[in-house]
């Protein structure tokens, strides 16, 4: 530091906080214009390949084939087949998010606070990193070879326990089958998001409540869960959006037999199955709204949750 302090153009003490004087404290190349040029490539990229393409769809949703303003496309979304697709997507996402959140919570709790051997924690975290990224087509293959009609578990149940899994009404290519498959990346994602929050539960809080005579149940319902609630709910919302936008797993698992909204949109993009381009844009707009709302709520809740992590 000392060598730099002797140079003239350094009025303020450089601290760890990014300070507002950064631009005015300019040495050789620091004009504001230069700084703007520095992030121009990023901004151009974001505008061209993220923002404009999305806006194009959003605007197209409110236009007819000739480019005139209309609300007809939005109204046309409310037909049974499209509503069913949205509804099935929402159901699968909701089920996999809620179940994933609960099971992920218990799993994270077990390794962080459950008194299990210490080596289990890094093992679970590494595995969660892998499994939360092991989505898409290969995941569908894994579940087909495990729970499909000829899958390992199906065969073992039949040969050794005499249970005909598919005779019980179970079908991998169904709502529950898809939910069960999605849980394979949802639970690890929950573990990854929630572990820092569980680490943030301070020992002192538990000790304080025990000293004050609180039972374990009271500690959880009155201290720990209220603190964790924004994290858990926020993570569940992220999980919801995560599975709502997913397509590859479902497509590889069920082909187009399961009518979720991403598969419908995929078919629309490939072959205009709705016979109306702009209706396709409206379909996309509906998806953007749903994932946008749940992600927005997640970001808001995370900001609330971070109050306790300091």
């Amino acid at each position: 530091m000392t060598a730099i302090d002797t140079t003239p153009p350094l009025p303020a003490e450089p601290g760890p906080v990014p300070d507002a004087f950064a631009a005015s404290r300019k040495p050789v190349m620091g004009q504001q214009t230069w700084a703007w040029i520095g992030i121009t490539p990023f901004m151009i990229f974001a505008i061209l390949f993220l923002i404009v393409p999305t806006l194009y769809l959003v605007i197209g949703a409110f236009q007819d084939a000739d480019g005139h303003f209309t609300l007809q496309n939005i109204a046309d979304l409310f037909t049974p087949s499209i509503l069913n697709a949205y509804w099935l997507s929402i159901k699968v996402s909701l089920a996999s998010a809620l179940i994933g959140a609960v099971l992920g919570f218990f799993l994270a709790y077990a390794v962080v606070l459950g008194g299990l051997p210490a080596w289990l924690r890094p093992t679970l975290m590494t595995f969660s990193g892998v499994a939360s990224n092991f989505a898409g087509v290969p995941l569908a293959f894994a579940f087909l070879s495990t729970l499909g009609r000829m899958g390992l578990v199906t065969v073992l149940l039949r040969d050794f326990l005499g249970i005909n899994l598919y005779g019980t009404g179970f079908n991998l290519l169904s709502f529950w089958g898809l939910t069960l498959t999605y849980l394979y990346f949802q639970i690890p994602l929950m573990v990854l998001i929630l572990t820092p929050a569980l680490d943030g539960l301070k020992k002192e809080w538990r000790e304080a409540s025990e000293i004050l005579g609180a039972s374990s149940k009271q500690y959880w319902t009155m201290v720990a869960l209220p603190v964790l609630f924004p994290s858990v709910l926020g993570a569940a919302l992220l999980l919801f959006a995560n599975s709502f936008g997913a397509i590859a797993t479902a497509y590889a698992l069920t082909g187009s037999s399961l009518n979720i909204v991403t598969i419908l949109l995929y078919a629309q993009i490939r072959g205009d199955v709705l016979h109306n381009q702009n209706l396709g844009y409206a379909l996309a707009l509906g998806m953007i709204l749903i994932t946008g709302l749940s992600n927005g709520a997640y970001i808001w809740l995370r900001a609330r949750a971070e109050r306790w992590m300091r």
Partner: peptide, 18 residues
């Protein structure tokens, strides 16, 4: 963070039109 909000299929749909 936008790519987490917007599903991949939406982004590529926009590309195909644009």
């Amino acid at each position: 963070l936008l790519p987490l909000v917007m599903p991949a299929i939406i982004i590529v749909f926009g590309y195909l039109r644009l």
